[in-house]
């Protein structure tokens, strides 16, 4: 048993080591891409905890990501929060929103839950447009360069510096990735999976399944908010596109492509899809068609995604 356990962590450390080394090897374009992918993969990890682990098919996770983006962006710009405080404020934004939405949306299940989360996310999106005096709506705003600094001891780190940006993104990803592994293999994680597999039975085993679903939503929303905050601060842009349905669909797509309920899936799915969309947008302005095609192909041919299929073919990495 202990051998399997250490395999799990060894794989995780190997993945993180590759990402750490990659920064010295990557050309600038891919360097930036990787930093972005790591932040978005953290968002996907958050989504995976709701849908992948707990079976809560949400189509509104963009609202938590956006809550983090706006909380951090407005917190830095309007309230003058320091960078670490803005980051924490973003996570808090995701947490509070997820708690509120969860309390209402979890009264429903199945497709009704999907529709309700979609609509709440739309309400958040419209709210960002409605209060455009504060949010600058569609256009969004750029977080001032002067604010994006962290002081550690006497040294000052600029988030606009590519190396700093890459490593902050890596640290964030490592935190979310390792936390998701620890969660999945904890007693709580086992209950979340049980809720996904057979909610009624889980309840009859003495678990407050509503409470666990709410917990999953809150953890998921907090991680999504944290990722959103990091995105805003690292890439300096805050705008309502991140609250649109498309970002909720992206989270679903990344997780499905990588492998639902697998810990490594979100990174793989986000990475593959970013490059695929990148490539397609060079070819056509209708590049989003690849999103549609990938979703349909996944459903028809690879329901377990890349990592899920790999586990099936080459033994159980997850155990």
């Amino acid at each position: 048993m202990s051998g399997v356990l250490s395999n799990r962590w060894l794989l995780a450390l190997a993945v993180l080591a590759v990402l750490l080394v990659a920064q010295v090897l990557l050309p600038p374009y891919h360097h930036t891409n990787f930093a972005r992918i790591m932040v978005l993969a953290s968002f996907a990890i958050g989504y995976n905890i709701a849908f992948g682990y707990t079976g809560l098919l949400s189509l509104g996770h963009a609202m938590f990501f956006a809550a983090g983006i706006y909380a951090a962006g407005l917190g830095a710009q309007e309230l003058g929060l320091s960078m670490p405080a803005a980051l924490a404020f973003g996570a808090l934004g995701g947490l509070v929103l997820a708690l509120a939405v969860g309390l209402i949306a979890l009264r429903t299940s199945g497709v009704a839950f999907l529709i309700v989360t979609l609509m709440f996310a739309q309400a958040v999106f419209l709210t960002t447009l409605y209060f455009n005096e504060v949010t600058k709506g569609d256009e969004g705003f750029v977080i001032a360069e002067a604010l994006r600094r962290i002081e550690i001891g006497g040294a000052e780190l600029k988030l606009s510096d590519p190396t700093v940006r890459y490593n902050v993104a890596l640290a964030l990803f490592a935190l979310c990735y390792l936390a998701s592994i620890a969660l999945l293999h904890s007693p709580v994680g086992r209950v979340l999976v049980a809720v996904r597999e057979n909610e009624q039975r889980t309840r009859m085993l003495g678990y407050n399944t509503f409470g666990y679903k709410l917990l999953a939503m809150v953890i998921s929303g907090t991680i999504s908010g944290l990722a959103g905050a990091a995105y805003a601060l690292l890439f300096a842009y805050v705008g309502s596109t991140f609250a649109s349905t498309q970002y909720s669909i992206y989270a679903l797509l990344w997780v499905l492509l990588g492998g639902l309920g697998t810990t490594l899936g979100p990174l793989i799915g986000t990475g593959l899809m970013s490059y695929l969309v990148d490539f397609a947008s060079d070819v056509t302005s209708s590049y989003l068609i690849v999103v549609g095609v990938v979703l349909v192909v996944l459903v028809l041919a690879f329901p377990k995604g890349v990592v899920g299929t790999a586990i099936e073919r080459w033994g159980r990495l997850r155990s």
Partner: peptide, 16 residues
């Protein structure tokens, strides 16, 4: 699966 597939269909139709 139908939800995911019809999301895919949404993009395919819209982008076509």
């Amino acid at each position: 699966a139908t939800i995911v597939a019809t999301i895919g269909l949404l993009y395919i139709i819209q982008q076509s």
